[in-house]
Amino acid sequence: MMAHVPSHYEVLGVPVTASVAEIKRAYRRAARQHHPDHGGDPLEFRRVTLAFEVLSRPDRRTAYDRSYFTSSPQREEQGGRREEHSGRREEHSGRAEGAPSAAAGTTADGGVHAHARRTAGQRSQWAEPAVYEPPFAEGVVPLVPADIAARPEHGEPRRRGLFGAEARIQRERSTAALIRRQVLAQIPSARLLNGLRSPADSAHIGHAVLAGYRLALVESMLVPRGNYAWDGAHLVHGSRTVAPPLLAHQVRHFQNLFPELNVQGFVLVATPDGNPHEPVIDVRRGAEGIIEPLNASKFVRELRHFLSSGPQPNTVFVPALARLLTGLH
């Protein structure tokens, strides 16, 4: 397994919420400790200097944060190979090996059957209180302060563009409320982030949900009531076709940025009346779209299953949460 590449924040020993004054104090402390003239390690001193050069300048820090710590990584050549961020990435199948299928483990309203909730008389791990990795320890400065890491929801929909802003904001608020009620309330480790900025093209992503070592990217759309057919690329309603939000390329990009996580995309299709079983969406034979649009009932069921069936689903993976928090617009 390749070595972990520390972020600039880790090198200086400050949280991602650190002020410029805190960064300067941490730099002076670290520079004295690692300066070669004082018997320190030249490699560590270079890491400290690079971290300070980036984090002490607002423009460079913003670019670094929006790249999710990849625009100016702490890499050193060793033996002709670059160190890479190691991770516990599972197979990118959207389901942990041996996990029950959605049909077998969930009820029609998105609830979980008793046999999925309990194993050998015990509660399933996803329903346990959240634990933090790495754990918070006295004397160790975490990447995210404990009180912030404990918050189930971060960020909010933001105004962007000139047209349709209010409708979009209301739709995203409704989506966040649905996730809050039906997912966060069920999975204590789940963390909802509203309004991420994609480093691929500066596009906005409505929502992301992190639980354990799984990350769900979520977009939503509003359509009139009725029956729709999904042909793999469009929702078809009579003579009308509607393209869902383009999310697949963002999923691929975030998977590359977070190799330690399993990343999957979800598109919620809602109707004005808020009926969770509307619209009815039939999947045409042979439709092989990467991300199938889902009504609210199926969306909740599939999202809950994805997050709860992963490895260590009751874990809040603090390094990933820290990177995502810096990507909020």
Rank of each mutant, 00 (worst) to 15 (best):
V236F: 00
S239F: 06
M221Q: 07
L217H: 05
A208H: 11
G164W: 08
H234C: 03
L215F: 04
E166M: 04
Q264Y: 13
Q182E: 15
Y228Q: 06
H249G: 06
L261M: 15
L268D: 06
G195Q: 11
R252H: 13
H253N: 09
P259M: 10
E278Y: 02
Y228A: 01
T271R: 03
H253R: 14
H204P: 00
Q170W: 00
A167P: 00
V242W: 05
Q264L: 10
R240Q: 13
L210V: 04
A211P: 01
F266W: 11
A233H: 12
R181I: 00
E166D: 13
V269F: 10
A248Q: 13
V251P: 12
D273P: 03
A233R: 15
R181T: 12
S198W: 07
A185V: 00
P245V: 13
F258T: 09
L222H: 04
F258H: 11
N227L: 11
D231P: 05
L268E: 05
A243N: 02
L192E: 10
A229I: 00
V236H: 00
V183P: 05
A270Q: 15
H234M: 12
L210T: 01
P244V: 09
H249K: 11
H204T: 13
R225G: 10
H204F: 07
L193G: 07
L261V: 01
R225E: 15
I205V: 15
G226P: 05
L261D: 02
V242P: 01
E166S: 10
N227Q: 09
L246Q: 14
R181W: 02
A233S: 14
